[in-house]
């Protein structure tokens, strides 16, 4: 009997794949570091100064940020609502178990993929340029973002529903509208509400910084306090944002747990 263990192939013996990946990553790191000029002087003085000022929040500023803070949440809710409702018909049109025409589905998914690839803040910058400074541009940016996101989550949910009720409806001669209302919607309603809350969480976070571009909400105060070097006020704004985000997340998590 041959006692020697079988030889590993060359590729595995020398870990060719692993080393190649490592080498490529290493080259990418070096190139990126050059492109971003990593290693400029880090002024610890300035950085520490910032944190020291921020560690002494100017609480008298708090009353002034409450209204824009509420506005931030309002923008997120309205934006999510508009986008979430607008996404429903498109999600049904893109689901393969509702619409058989692959061409229609393909077109809708392609356009929605394009919409989803635009970052939220860029949407906000565009809408500020189009409709002007104010909450409306923020709402529109959030609505378009929610539209793309809810669409994707919803059509995937629709495609993975239990096929039984749909087939039963079709076999009994149900029209497509009846199939949707009686076989699909009851199955995806809870998921839809859960996606809605999830999108709302993301939108509250985004909404807090949208104002930096003039799209309404508390972000504007972030901008002005930073520009005027009032970091003690900046920290009040940031703390207020953090509290709201944590509260909304906690509430939304509770509701989503109740839904599932």
């Amino acid at each position: 009997m041959n006692k020697s263990i079988p030889k590993r192939p060359f590729m595995k013996e020398w870990h060719v794949t692993g080393f190649t990946v490592f080498l490529l990553l290493f080259i990418a790191v070096v190139l990126s570091a050059q492109a971003t000029q990593v290693g400029q002087d880090f002024s610890m003085e300035q950085f520490a100064d910032l944190w020291i000022k921020m560690a002494n929040p100017d609480w008298s500023y708090l009353p002034r940020v409450l209204t824009p803070l509420a506005q931030t949440v309002q923008m997120a809710i309205v934006g999510t609502l508009i986008g979430g409702i607008a996404a429903i018909p498109f999600a049904f049109l893109a689901a393969s178990n509702i619409v058989r025409n692959a061409f229609v589905r393909g077109i809708i998914r392609f356009v929605m993929n394009l919409i989803r690839s635009i970052p939220q803040m860029l949407l906000a910058a565009l809408f500020v340029a189009v409709v002007g400074i104010g909450t409306l541009s923020g709402v529109l940016a959030l609505a378009v973002f929610s539209f793309g996101m809810m669409f994707k989550l919803l059509y995937e949910a629709i495609e993975t529903v239990d096929q039984g009720p749909i087939e039963a409806m079709r076999a009994a001669g149900g029209k497509r509208s009846q199939v949707i209302v009686f076989a699909v919607i009851p199955q995806v309603l809870n998921q839809y509400l859960s996606f809605f809350l999830y999108t709302l969480e993301i939108n509250v976070r985004a909404s807090a910084v949208l104002g930096y571009l003039g799209a309404g909400g508390i972000g504007l105060y972030l901008n002005t306090t930073l520009d005027t070097f009032r970091y003690d006020q900046t920290s009040v704004v940031i703390l207020a944002i953090l509290v709201v985000i944590v509260l909304v997340d906690a509430l939304s998590n509770k509701l989503r747990e109740a839904l599932s």
Binding site: V73, V78, G216
Partner: peptide, 10 residues
Amino acid sequence: AFSGIEFKGM
């Protein structure tokens, strides 16, 4: 939520 948004001003 809708009460906080200025829909005019476009």
